[in-house]
């Protein structure tokens, strides 16, 4: 489903990703763990081409993301084509990034209408259904700042789902939340996992990773240190660095 091969990325002199290879099968949940600054968010963002990679390939369903191969060169895609690719990928931000001047319902309806050119009349009932599903059905007509952080993040998840994406990417979805609000967001993500959505989640919630991950990937210093089922990586890590990280966050 998602296929990452030999991805390198630098910000100025700082090399953040030093050759990442990762495969995410359809219907699987992959959790990326790692200390801050390890490159995990950058990796997630490059899957959506929010960051351009310097070297390497990313494919979703066999389609090259951000580039077109002509002969032996990769040509950067036009903005419009990149936007089309992005509308097949749902992205949930750490800081929600809901559109503050639009109501909850308008937030959810916006992208399907403007990016996928679907009819508002057909999208709206679906949007309401999604809001119901993430537990904020009664908040459709309020503005984001009238909601708690947990509610905002659940709206953001509904907004990502409205595009009917092939893949969902979560960038530390609970890091900006008060501790008592973390659970309600994780419950929504778990629900999606049970429904068979393909997801990549960057998180610090080890317990949550253990519960939903099919594969846990531990990244440090721009490289994948180890990956495998949670039972292996979390409970019997092979590498010293993984062990040290897990003992610190637990």
């Amino acid at each position: 489903m998602i296929d990452v091969k030999g991805v390198h990325k630098s910000f100025g002199d700082l090399e953040v990703l030093k050759g990442i290879d990762l495969e995410v099968p359809a219907g699987a949940v992959t959790v990326i763990l790692g200390p801050s600054g390890s490159g995990k968010s950058t990796l997630l963002r490059s899957i959506n081409h929010l960051e351009k990679v310097d070297r390497g390939l990313i494919r979703i369903d066999g389609e090259l993301i951000g580039y077109r191969r002509r002969g032996n060169k990769l040509h950067e895609l036009r903005e419009r084509e990149i936007l089309r690719q992005r509308s097949q990928v749902g992205f949930v931000f750490q800081t929600f990034n809901l559109f503050g001047h639009l109501t909850v319902l308008e937030n959810v309806v916006e992208a399907p209408v403007s990016a996928q050119r679907r009819k508002r009349s057909e999208v709206e009932p679906y949007a309401r259904e999604l809001l119901e599903r993430v537990g904020v059905g009664d908040k459709a007509d309020v503005y984001p700042r009238q909601l708690s952080g947990g509610q905002q993040q659940r709206v953001a998840i509904a907004r990502a789902l409205a595009l009917k994406p092939k893949v969902l990417l979560f960038d530390e979805p609970t890091s900006a939340l008060d501790p008592e609000l973390v659970g309600e967001v994780l419950d929504v993500i778990k629900e999606l996992a049970r429904d068979g959505a393909t997801m990549v989640v960057v998180t610090h919630e080890i317990g949550f990773a253990r519960e939903i991950a099919d594969t846990v990937v531990f990244i440090d210093d721009g490289r994948i240190v180890e990956s495998g089922p949670p039972r292996e990586v979390l409970d019997n890590p092979v590498h010293e660095r993984t062990r040290a990280f897990i003992s610190k966050v637990l």
Binding site: R80, F91, F93, T95, N97, F99, A111
Partner: peptide, 14 residues
């Protein structure tokens, strides 16, 4: 900047 980023991530035209 998160507003533009979210809009870009949703594939909303420029």
């Amino acid at each position: 900047a998160g507003q533009t980023e979210a809009a870009a991530a949703l594939g909303i035209p420029k």
